[in-house]
Design a protein around this nucleic acid. Structure first.
Lengths: 105, 105
DNA sequence: TGATTATATGATTCATTAGTCATATAATCC
DNA sequence: GGATTATATGACTAATGAATCATATAATCA
């Protein structure tokens, strides 16, 4: 596969691969949210969350629109959530394996 | 969601989010490969590839087994590829949108 | 045993990233 | 217009990551 394509794929995955951003995306499972709702909901610094959202926007994971003073954010593609679901699935299986390994204790 | 779970999910995604590692995983689509095949196939430095593989192993993306001097690597869960497929899908759609945006030129 | 092949790892460098504080901008309301 | 609310951004720090070179380990074979 071409180097450029791999870089673009890596960028999409990188945009997902961070706890604070995952937290934001989980909040967005139920649809559009205002940044002013996200900040208290995930108990983060406003400037930090602003940066994370603008980062995800650059990587086309989310879109935003202005509503007065507020900025509404939503996830662009539903496939994003399918990816997160698969990651959950893999993690759960890993956990089960770990349990098995220590079940003799 | 608990902070620890988010961190673990982020780690799985981080392990995917790097061009060299994506290249290695693409090679592994067709099954088990020796590291000595991977190194020339992706034209990388041996030590670098060794580190990437051991990183993916720590994150449970791949498993390895010794076969004489060689180390054989394979992807642990088929869901890994499903995730990569979804990323491809998202990327292709992004490309199409970009095309549309510049179609008037 | 000594040479060869395959892989791992310590040490280092350079770049990127997350987070924070202070401040800037921008829309709304009184 | 001035205060308030919501968001963005510059400057900085600390942590992490990728890549590289040199070298170590480990298995195989002549």
């Amino acid at each position: 596969m071409e180097e450029r394509v791999l870089e673009l794929k890596a960028e999409i995955l990188k945009a997902l691969a961070q706890p604070t951003r995952l937290k934001i995306l989980e909040l967005l499972r139920n649809g559009e949210r205002c940044i002013c709702e996200i900040v208290p909901a995930i108990n983060g610094e406003q400037s930090n969350i602003s940066r994370h959202i603008s980062m995800m926007q650059k990587n086309h994971l989310v879109t935003t629109r202005k509503d007065g003073v507020k900025v509404m954010v939503k996830v662009k593609d539903p496939e994003i959530f399918e990816i997160l679901n698969k990651v959950s699935f893999i993690l759960k299986r890993q956990m089960k394996e770990q349990e098995k390994l220590f079940s003799h204790i």
